[in-house]
């Protein structure tokens, strides 16, 4: 069923619809036109000012860890964190870092990263995001 012209490109879907894929992936929020409150999920109206008009805005891909926990229930421990991306808090899992209190620090600088999480029966690849310690 594959279109011969598209053999080169693998179909990809983002893990959540606020992750925008491409050469430089980024997270995208629904920003209230009136009060500028930002939401990652679909909203019927603004929780802050009740306006119902939103515009998609790009979230900067670097930030600072303002809180974290290391969840040790289950087979593999993981780090859940809140990252402040220049004023927009983002919830994420930290990747590319050992899930230990020695390696994860409050205030550490991190950046957005994506990774493949698998392929479905039609060959579509799912891409998830996390934040990883900044290289700089």
């Amino acid at each position: 069923m594959t279109d011969p012209e598209n053999l080169e490109s693998i179909q990809q879907v983002p893990f959540v619809d606020y992750l925008v894929l491409g050469e430089h992936p980024y997270l995208c929020a629904n920003e209230c036109n009136q009060c500028k409150a930002r939401f990652f999920d679909r909203r019927n109206a603004c929780a802050s000012c009740f306006s119902d008009e939103f515009t998609k805005v790009r979230i900067v891909t670097t930030g600072e860890v303002t809180s974290f926990t290391i969840v040790e229930m289950g087979p593999v421990p993981y780090v859940s964190a809140i990252v402040d991306c220049e004023g927009t808090p983002v919830r994420c899992t930290l990747i590319g870092v050992d899930p230990t209190p020695e390696e994860v620090q409050l205030g550490m600088k991190v950046e957005l990263a994506t990774y493949p999480m698998g392929v479905d029966s039609e060959g579509t690849e799912a891409i998830a995001f996390g934040f990883t310690p900044s290289k700089k």
Partner: peptide
């Protein structure tokens, strides 16, 4: 069989562990 977005985030799977945590000890730890 295929990735199906659902819910208000259009997630194609459980967000637990993938986008941080929802479990209570983790939320209150944060």
């Amino acid at each position: 069989e295929t990735w199906e977005p659902s819910g208000r985030f259009g997630a194609i799977g459980s967000t637990e562990g993938r986008i941080g945590t929802n479990i209570m000890p983790g939320v209150f730890a944060q």
